[in-house]
């Protein structure tokens, strides 16, 4: 644990925490645009800057990356920080005057508009990198990246063509704070001509990466629920059976073993088609069934076969 001061208040932070995490634990507000607890800190938006005094030296640092160490003195609203933050918000306003979250942040900090001497663009991407990082770090599809560099930096699919590695999971659209990433789920349609009708199954398009993929339909409820390439990727990654994703998450129910009733006869185990049930030795004579749900396809066989009706 580290003990540090934020705005004069003494707080403790667990080992490995950043100043931002420590501040948020103690309800101290620090604005951010590019940070997300599921992703590694990136330090691109610079809004989370704070003034840090350590060993007699005072510097301005991004709280999302700086470790909360013993003896730090942190100021989240010092004049330098306030001025810096103001300029950054103005720069964002100059770049994206019509993006809602930028306008909201500007309003919160009392900034009406960017300095008139600055030029104005009308961009909708704030280059926070959340989409790129989600795609690369979490989904691990690596379908999109930053392209160009410097002033001309954009987020793009390779060579500005259809993103071949995109699995249409929609994480980019989900995490994008400005709404510029357009994901549309389209129902199945028929196209009819005098010759006859052709069915197009339900699909998902992500316009920004020129991607279109079929949605998988749940065999139980009949609803399209997730893009097929994403499900295939997960199936490969975790070595699931090919049929695993035939059922959607809403319909999928995993077995629960009532250990009071279970007598460890192994009937469920014997009949499980993919070995998702094992008998756990709980000491002595008793062996209770244990389900490894990552292999389980929720086919209900074990439930049917339990003599003690211990599985539901």
């Amino acid at each position: 644990m580290a003990t540090l001061k934020i705005n004069g208040k003494k707080i403790t932070a667990p080992d490995g925490a950043t100043i931002l995490e420590a501040a948020r634990e103690h309800d101290i507000k620090i604005p951010t645009l590019c940070s997300n607890e599921a992703l590694k800190p990136y330090g691109a938006c610079r809004l989370c800057i704070v003034e840090v005094t350590q060993n007699g030296r005072t510097t301005i640092e991004t709280s999302c990356t700086y470790p909360a160490e013993d003896g730090l003195e942190v100021k989240t609203e010092s004049p330098r920080v306030a001025e810096g933050r103001k300029l950054i918000i103005e720069l964002y306003l100059a770049r994206c005057p019509n993006v809602k979250i930028i306008r909201q942040m500007a309003e919160e900090y009392g900034i009406k508009e960017s300095a008139p001497q600055m030029g104005k663009d009308n961009d909708y991407c704030i280059l926070c990198g959340l989409c790129v990082r989600a795609c690369n770090e979490v989904v691990k599809a690596g379908a999109i990246q930053f392209a160009g560099s410097g002033i001309n930096k954009i987020v793009d699919s390779p060579f500005h063509k259809t993103a071949e590695d995109c699995v249409a999971c929609g994480s980019c659209a989900f995490i994008c704070p400005t709404g510029i990433i357009k994901k549309n789920d389209l129902p199945s349609t028929s196209q009819c001509t005098p010759e006859g009708c052709t069915q197009t199954g339900a699909q998902r398009e992500i316009l920004n990466w020129q991607v279109e993929h079929k949605l998988k339909v749940c065999t139980k409820c009949g609803n399209p629920y997730a893009p097929e390439p994403h499900l295939q990727k997960i199936t490969r990654q975790y070595n699931f059976l090919p049929e695993f994703f035939n059922i959607c998450a809403s319909c999928r129910q995993y077995p629960v073993v009532d250990e009071e009733k279970c007598l460890g006869c192994g009937g469920c185990m014997e009949n499980c088609p993919i070995g998702a049930l094992e008998l756990e030795d709980k000491g002595g004579y008793d062996k209770k069934a244990h389900v490894f749900t990552e292999n389980c396809t929720a086919c209900h066989t074990c439930e049917d076969y339990c003599p003690m009706r211990a599985i539901s």
């Binding site: 192994g266 009937g267 185990m269 008998l279 004579y285 008793d286 062996k287």
Partner: peptide
């Protein structure tokens, strides 16, 4: 599949 076959639980 079992750990200890000397104990008959089936």
């Amino acid at each position: 599949k079992r750990k200890d076959i000397s104990k008959i639980t089936r």
